[in-house]
Design a protein around this nucleic acid. Structure first.
Lengths: 173, 173
DNA sequence: CATTAATGGAACATCAGTGTTCCATTAGGT
DNA sequence: ACCTAATGGAACACTGATGTTCCATTAATG
């Protein structure tokens, strides 16, 4: 719910959850409390999903494919956490939610070192592209009601090869 | 300003513009009036920039590169218009702001027909990837203060070839 | 069945953002 | 220098979201 609209009213949230607004306040002291709880929960869910992908094992390309699958699976949490930059704004250095960034960057660097990923761009850029395509794919699936595995395939395909047909003569000037 | 935060206070906006809140109300009847004006302005600016790119001419690949350059140049407007889906929500069928979608889709279809772009994904998907990478690149440039031409190159590179090194044996299973 | 805890509706004060009015000040044009 | 229009500050009412209290109702437990 908060992923779809970070500024959703507490009444709307309670409504969507099928409980009364009073009950919501009984479980979460105030709005920030609820947001914090949602953030914790999302980070935990994403962390678990990424951990399950075991991206430190196998070839970088296969690991990246598993990672994309894992990320799409928790797309709603990703949209919530990173869709609106204001969600994580207040917690800059305090509770860095990036135990998930680290293994991903490690994978990217490993892939670059092994010659699988483009070594001429920064690992951070690849990470952002990854996130960006997963986000786009997830949104697409949500909007059109497409099945997840199709989206995962498309995201992986584009992530790996871009939008060109796969002949190698087109290179940047 | 509205691009960075769609829910910015009118006082903040007036402040950022260096005028008083009263003056703001004198020029724009109400908040929706200001938003509408900003939307109109952004659409016009994007439209002009995209028109200048002349994406109906030249090879699809070159045209796409010019399009990316043009889009990054008006990145702030794009972030405002499409960053928060609620901006364009109220104006669904009324004032379709997609005179810019059409030429882009035309270019994509032309590129697919001429064998330049991946024919196995939908034009809409390519369009969303394009937008997504431009958005990501622009945000990156804003955050790190990078020069625009560098970002443009990186976006084009990733858009065309993905994150793989450019050998064609890695294909989806 | 009786007791207890949880629920959710209603009502309330509070606060922030908005839109308006009024007026003193200032910038621009003659 | 003078007149006019634009500006922006202060104050106000209004609205919607929030957080709180109180109480009737319901579900769960013995």
């Amino acid at each position: 719910m908060l992923g779809r609209d970070y500024h959703a009213t507490l009444a709307d949230i309670a409504d969507a959850a099928g409980v009364g607004r009073t009950t919501l306040h009984r479980y979460f002291s105030d709005r920030t409390g609820l947001i914090s709880a949602a953030i914790e929960d999302s980070i935990a869910a994403i962390d678990e999903s990424v951990a399950d992908a075991a991206i430190d094992q196998g070839s970088p390309i296969e690991a990246m494919r598993r990672l994309v699958t894992a990320m799409v699976a928790v797309g709603d949490r990703l949209v919530f956490l990173f869709g609106d930059p204001r969600v994580l704004e207040g917690r800059g250095a305090a509770k860095t939610p990036e135990p998930l960034d680290d293994p991903v960057l490690t994978l990217i660097k490993r892939g670059q070192a092994e010659g699988a990923f483009d070594p001429d761009v920064t690992p951070t850029w690849i990470q952002r592209v990854l996130w960006s395509l997963v986000y786009t794919g997830y949104q697409d699936a949500e909007a059109c009601g497409l099945p997840r595995h199709g989206i995962v395939s498309t995201v992986i395909r584009t992530l790996e090869n871009g939008i060109h047909t796969s002949n190698p003569e087109h290179r940047q000037a």
